[in-house]
Write a protein that binds this DNA or RNA. Structure first.
Lengths: 214, 214, 214, 214
DNA sequence: TATGAATGAGTGTTCATTCAT
DNA sequence: GATGAATGAACACTCATTCAT
């Protein structure tokens, strides 16, 4: 099948309204029914438009899901933590990052679960997510390398692998806690993750020994 | 009308052969096509039996997938590490456990990816997996508690949450490395994970300091 | 999961055409193949539409059969015999009713046989038919009661049971004659049924003795 | 498909037992599930034999249903009423016949409903039933003719058609009352049917006028 | 742009029937 | 005769996608 159609970025005000209605409706339907059971007809119905109108803006299920994902991702991403907060202490930064990530994850849990599901189903979506995760890991790896160079983190650690492992740990826990709904108190969770990060990196205590408990 | 069919555990030798052929064929087809794209007709064809024969032993896709999963899980589980190896040093045990887990995961990577996928699709399969994972986490939590009681592990850590986080980290990395195929050398991966476990628990070094890097 | 699809009453002219084509085609196929052997694919083919189009208007076999039944029933029902014809003599009314019923039955014999068949298969269809038959019987029972009150009919008769029995007799004969095709001349049939009705009710002869044969 | 197999009348004692078990089981299953929903596998299971064994004695569903029908019909038929009872008065004979028929019908209502259903489905079964019904009607027609010849019944009536109509009326009422379960007291039902028969035939009253009510 | 009717490929599932043991 | 596993034809139904108004 040749997909020759070019989907449009709506020019008219009406077009923009329709497209927005569709994305909003899609979010509702996807969250309610899951990716596989969501039917495009339900999405257009929920949006109050004819079924065919969906194809004016999207190629199909995958693309409209992408649109939902992009919208939500925009809402969720709060980069430049350091610049934004002025915090420089790595332990504090770790706390802030974990805390913010978990909060955002919890808030959008339904959708995050969906993302996980779809990344196991749709090749392209998976690729995008892996790439995004990798970028995130790279950033953390750079941070670790910086700490190592500054003598503040265990130089034996492979920065990339460690960043992978620790980041993965956090997102996995978010999934377990807020999608699989294994009950764990937010504060305790943050603390445990912080502690593992800090000890894994062997960050020095703030004005004292970190790693020991003697 | 609900027809409560009783699926049979085959009594005759021929029956056992057929059932086995179906499970083996199912594994081939699932690994090749993924869960969603696998067609039952392909499985029976691959097994060299008529399409209807599948229903002699299984209720449908989910059940035959379960059968594959059970078979593979049996192959993979190597419990009682301590009893089996005689190793008692926690650091060595951690190394052994991580090593063995990653090896088995790598060997059955296709299937492990499938499990992940299906647990995002099939409610019941997901439930079974979560329960199994929880049991595993409990075991690790008990180990951590024992170490804490013996004064060998950081008493500040919440055993259950820590076990959750560290176990999750390992399985996540296995997934990233062998399903998503992000390249990372086996040995380096094991070492990094070991190191994080050990430092997170603040296990004392074997005849020396573990956690510091001075 | 129950998907509560809403079948549409077509809005567009094209939709109406399609729906009509389907009902007409269904009648052809049902009459040709019987209810059980009729395949929905044949109906859509006969209507010259795609197989899926049937589901735009009907939920399945039962519903499209209902549609055929409704259409035909509309064609067949000629109520208000008395008002329509101005006839008041009970004997004449009986004759008119029987005559008209048998004529309509004969004309739609194939379908009437189908109705009989389907009412033995489909619960809901049966319920509708029984209800309709009961309404008819009630009407006749009222008529009998009126005649009794006027002293024109045997007061010993139970109006409802008698109405049941006599109405049932007529429809049964229609079935035997025109579906089972047991040969019997129309005129003789009408006369026999009329005579039994009249004698059963002991209606007085018009200007003479009816019930006796002396 | 060529049906070349010859089904056996069992010779061995075991064979007879198996065949009987199958017929009994078939009756249970047919009464429980109806003809269409009855599965041969359920019948053999109910009989406690292997599914294949059914084919030792019957060609398929229709044939085993026939076997059930024959068995029950034997139980139901009580011919030679006159000879058996010594009753000769036509009014009494009519009462006896109707009474006995309705009693037997009521007792085997489930099965009678089944017969009705199957005669709308299976060609051959229908043929057998029609023939049997015709034989019955012939007998009644002969009786009417005899009464006419004896001057005891309205000579204007067509004996065959009248017999058809009146017999059909009775069996129809039995169906309505005991299969469709429209509530009507047994005694009142018998009386109404008797009365209609008697008045339709214009049988003289026993020691008085029958047909009039003046 | 919007509409909504039409399309039709794709597949799970049942169960009567057969037949090797 | 009995067994019960194997067979495989048959068909309803869904829903993403198209396209004439």
């Amino acid at each position: 099948m040749v997909k020759s159609e070019v989907r449009v970025t709506p020019r008219s005000a009406r077009g923009i309204r329709t497209r927005n209605a569709l994305v909003a409706a899609a979010r509702v339907v996807f969250e309610r029914d899951g990716y596989l059971d969501a039917r495009l007809a339900d999405i257009s119905a929920e949006a109050g438009v004819a079924s065919g109108s969906l194809y004016t803006y999207f190629e199909g299920k995958e693309e409209i899901f992408q649109a939902v994902a992009e919208q939500v991702t925009e809402e969720m991403v709060h980069p430049h933590l350091r610049a934004r907060t002025g915090v420089t202490d790595p332990r504090e930064l770790i706390d802030l990052a974990n805390r913010e990530y978990l909060r955002a994850y919890k808030k959008n849990a339904k959708l995050m679960g969906l993302f996980e599901q779809v990344s196991h189903i749709d090749e392209e979506f998976r690729a995008v997510r892996i790439e995004r995760a990798n970028a995130f890991v790279q950033r953390n790896a750079r941070m670790i390398r910086t700490l190592q160079d500054a003598g503040s983190a265990d130089p034996e650690l492979d920065p990339l692998l460690t960043a992978h492992a620790l980041s993965g740990m956090v997102s996995r826990m978010a999934f377990v806690a807020y999608v699989q709904k294994v009950p764990m108190p937010f504060e305790k969770l943050v603390e445990t993750l912080n502690r593992i990060w800090i000890k894994a990196l062997s960050l020095p205590a703030v004005g004292g020994s970190v790693s020991g408990f003697e």
